[in-house]
Design a protein around this nucleic acid. Structure first.
Lengths: 230, 230
DNA sequence: CTTCTGAGTGCACGCATGTACACTCATGTA
DNA sequence: TACATGAGTGTACATGCGTGCACTCAGAAG
């Protein structure tokens, strides 16, 4: 398998022509599913046959790539999140260059990114709670990953340095979910509602400023939560 | 229609026996849908026939109550949110009696409420983003209602008095979504995970404390968000 | 050049679904 | 008491579904 190893650019030529075509069909199926989820449909409401039809392939060919629609869903999470991580990493590197990445700049960048990749975010938003358990868990894991990474990133900046890891994660969690909330609201807009879009963005920016204001005042020892009646 | 008006307890006897039975069947259908949504299924993955079967009624009887599954979904939102509003109002009245409702007490009360009404909250969580557009919009409206009501409620307490309405709503929005986030996380637990349950609750309590800490420092004029490139 | 592999095809099947229609018969109305 | 209503029934049908199986025939392997 996977030969044709004539020492060419290895990213291109570790794959045979056949495998390349297979990957293309696979991508067509993933794409088809994403397309069909436009107009507010969820994976649960899309049939295997529909996906195959949209991808221009006979229904039984589906099985060469995925066990069933659940498998397609999981692959979609992987596929979408891989791209997402990569781009987030790039954004992070760019941010290290320009010190003092203001909240506003970051959020506006994020908004642009969400709107540019609306199909991916629509999928994640829709299936995050509405999807089958396996898909939900996969998305939850990705979000936990982002939270942990954000917690690590802000560990070096003033108010967060020397803060207990627990509290850092708690704040990162709050930030991530506030931003995800913005993303969900944006996707609900009928597209092209620039004014409302800006209102939502402004609201989120304020919310993040408020959170950082709170973080600056935060003292872990005052925030302890007693067990109460378990 | 709706006679038998022999001046009895009007809550009971403005309905004929027939209408009463019809209502009972209707409720059975709503209940059946809620039941079938256990184990992580969404409305989109449940058939009209299944609901009828679970309710102990022939499929075509469904149409006497709802136009289709979308109609059932909308009715479910109304039904569930009506109960919810009523109980929230009671909680609010109770809170007015005991001044200084600590964050901790409120959140723990909310957690108990979510776990006691898990089917209702599971439905709302699942369909909030994952549902058909009409259902999503109905739920979004209910959430906006809660946000507005919370904003009104806290208007009288120290840090929030004399704060612009915009900022108040922005904070209420942050609080409500933080709490909804807790609710979603709780429902994802396999039930009976009391330790993890307490961890999640503690995290949310901390997040709310941090938010109120930020709110105490908040100055509207410093939080203005310039338009930027529209 | 020959042989083998496996991605995509075409057909067939049984099954569940949404909904139309004509029905029954308990209950409300007069 | 006699009639009208309408909630729930039972039958029927076309449609779309998931999936099994035998197939073709590029293209990889030797």
């Amino acid at each position: 398998m996977n030969s044709r190893s004539e020492a060419l650019p290895p990213n291109e030529r570790t794959l045979t022509l056949r495998d390349e075509r297979k990957l293309r069909t696979r991508q067509a199926l993933l794409d088809a599913a994403l397309t069909l989820m436009g107009q507010g449909r969820s994976l649960a409401g899309i049939s295997l046959r529909e996906v195959a039809r949209e991808a221009g392939v006979v229904p039984t060919a589906f099985y060469r790539h995925f066990r069933d629609m659940d498998g397609l869903g999981l692959a979609l999470v992987d596929d979408v999140c891989l791209t997402l991580r990569k781009l987030m990493r790039e954004a992070r590197v760019a941010a290290q260059g320009a010190r003092d990445v203001a909240i506003q700049t970051s959020v506006q960048g994020f908004v642009g990114y969400v709107l540019a990749n609306d199909r991916a975010f629509e999928f994640l938003t829709r299936e995050r709670f509405g999807g089958r358990p396996a898909v939900r868990q996969a998305i939850a894991r990705e979000i936990r990953y982002f939270v942990a990474e954000l917690a690590n990133d802000v560990r070096v900046v003033p108010p967060f340095a020397a803060m207990p890891s627990d509290d850092l994660e708690m704040i990162a969690d709050l930030v991530v979910h506030t931003v995800l909330n913005l993303s969900a609201d944006l996707l609900e807009l009928p597209s092209g509602q620039r004014v409302r879009e800006h209102e939502l963005t402004a609201r989120t920016i304020k919310q993040l400023r408020l959170i950082f204001l709170g973080a600056a005042q935060w003292r872990s020892d005052r925030g302890a939560v007693p067990l109460g009646p378990i």
